[in-house]
Design a protein around this nucleic acid. Structure first.
Length: 487
RNA sequence: GGUACCGUGGCCGAGUGGCUAGGCGGUGGUCUGCAAAACCAUAGACGGCGGUUCGAAUCCGUCCGGUACCUCCA
């Protein structure tokens, strides 16, 4: 397929035509979760954003290798003092093995992702499984003179690096500014400059996770894992690197620096960053302690939630905003997403009932074109979805006899929804009737009894059946062609 | 303080110079024994001020308000 995809590249701050380095192969790396807590709504954003990228690239017949890491080693919590490892810290508090926690939260993360219908990445490497690669990387950077050892730890020499390369090219930061702004902070005696970041950190007695290295018993710096694993599985230069905007600096900036210090060139062609989800206008995040976990959304068991919201409602809600915009959480907005998505699926179900006409009064190819235009324009899912709604309105009018669709066009529309809604947008109709045959037959029997009652104008019986089924969470819809039910 | 970004109708949210965004909600209608659902129709907007232009939500200036990053964060 001929692609006309344009991607907004954070590196150049412009939309660029997407030209894979080794077409039809595409390498994509996305920063995954740190597994020391349950996934919240904020984690769903990049997962779904890059799931769409993954799905759409595959739809364009590109061969994508999608790598999403699991950070299980932990980040430096505070460069200024002991540099605590987050995962280890929680382990002490809970008296569990660190790897026990990692396993527990990784499993829960995977379950949430499955619920959101996020496709599994091609490779999901862990930081702890690539300590050797990270140590090799540090050695090379040391050999190339862009790092120095200090008291058993190794730091990246940003000032030295800046003489040969542009530190700040991604985030737009200038070294002088960094210097001014960080100089005030507490004395970090080990480092030459406050903005130098750790490549290897010597462990302290409170740490549970540490590994031997030429410099000390310790653990790798946070930015290193992505450099090591990206290069290992996607090559020294690959196509797309994604992550949240909050990772832009220092994480991604430092990744670029590490690659250059090591290999003399940038690691990535297109940098993509999703924006944040806000709550009351503020970023939803761990540090602000204002997050709602995905499980809480699904169960509705959280004081801020008026009701449970299904995984697909969350997915649709996120897709209704462009990935580079912030999206504000509210019950009203989620409710709107829920209703809107339902409307879309009603149309899709309706398609099976429509009787084709001789000729079409609608030009259906138009909608296919519009959908691709929207997706090609930096994955503009809200626009793509708006076209699906427009088409939906027309399909409803066909059902009302105001518009017509030919045999061929009807199939075209069905296929269009199949491909766009299910394959590309990755939505699933959660209201699907149970495929249990017995239940179906039982429901038919019950609805027939109710039909008889209605024919006899026995409204109290008819209403009782409806109410009793309602208590079982089964909804009855009286349509022109008889009653329908759904769970 | 530095850097980047945003301010669109009751709510969410697209849109970069002229052409209906879309969804939810509201209102009116169709259908129905009633209700719900569904469907159709419809109103309402571009933070303030100034400028550029035949014409600005869209460009420029300014003011006001908000956010993110600079420390772990998706």
């Amino acid at each position: 397929m001929n692609n006309n995809l344009h991607i907004y590249n954070t590196l150049t701050r412009t939309k660029e035509k997407f030209e894979p380095i080794n077409a039809p192969h595409v390498g994509m790396y996305v920063c995954g979760p740190t597994v020391y807590g349950d996934a919240h709504l904020g984690h769903a954003r990049p997962a779904i954003t890059f799931d769409i990228v993954f799905r759409y690239l595959k739809h364009l017949d590109l061969k994508v290798r999608y790598v999403r890491n699991i950070t299980d080693v932990g980040h430096l919590e505070n460069d200024a003092d002991e540099g605590e490892d987050k995962i280890a810290k929680k382990a002490i508090l809970e008296s569990l093995e660190p790897m026990e926690i990692v396993k527990y939260y990784t499993d829960r993360y995977h379950r949430n992702m499955d619920q959101l219908n996020v496709l599994h990445p091609s490779i999901e490497p862990t930081a702890s499984g690539h300590i050797i690669e990270q140590i090799e990387l540090i050695k090379t950077i040391l050999d190339n003179g862009y790092a120095y050892e200090s008291e058993g730890s190794v730091y990246f020499d940003v000032e030295k690096y800046s003489k040969d390369y542009d530190y700040g090219k991604l985030s737009g930061r200038k070294l002088e500014d960094l210097l001014e702004n960080t100089r005030v902070l507490a004395g970090q005696a080990e480092k030459k400059n406050s903005f130098d970041f750790a490549l290897w950190k010597k462990t302290d007695p409170r740490h549970l996770m540490h590994w031997p290295s030429p410099w000390s018993e310790g653990y790798p710096g946070w930015h290193l894992e992505c450099s090591a694993m990206g290069a290992k599985y996607l090559g020294e230069t690959f196509d797309i690197h994604g992550g949240g905007m909050d990772l832009l600096f220092p994480h991604h900036e430092s990744e670029i620096a590490q690659s250059n210090a090591c290999r003399g060139h940038d690691p990535v062609k297109y940098w993509m960053h999703n924006n944040m989800i806000t709550i009351d206008g503020q970023k939803m995040g761990k540090s602000l302690n204002n997050f709602i976990t995905l499980d809480e959304f699904f169960s509705g068991d959280q004081e801020l939630l008026e009701k449970p919201y299904s995984p697909m409602t969350i997915r649709f809600f996120i897709l209704q905003a462009h990935y580079r915009s912030t999206v504000d959480f509210s019950n009203e907005a989620l409710h709107a997403a829920e209703k809107g998505m339902k409307k879309l699926f009603n149309t899709i179900e309706l398609l099976d009932k429509i009787v084709p006409s001789e000729k079409s009064s609608i030009e259906v190819e138009h909608f296919e074109k519009k959908f691709y235009e929207a997706m090609d324009d930096d994955f503009n899912t809200p626009i793509a979805i708006s076209h699906l709604f427009d088409l939906s309105k027309l399909v409803n009018q066909v059902n009302d006899g105001k518009e017509t669709l030919s045999d061929i066009d009807l199939e075209f529309v069905k296929n269009l929804y199949d491909v766009f809604v299910f394959d590309v947008l990755g939505l699933v109709n959660e209201e699907e009737k149970g495929d249990d045959q017995l239940v179906g037959q039982l429901m038919d029997t019950i609805l027939n009894l109710r039909k008889d009652a209605k024919l006899n104008k026995d409204w109290s019986t008819a209403d009782k059946i409806r109410d009793e089924l309602g208590k079982l969470n089964i909804k009855i819809k009286d349509t022109k062609d008889g009653a329908e039910w759904s769970q």
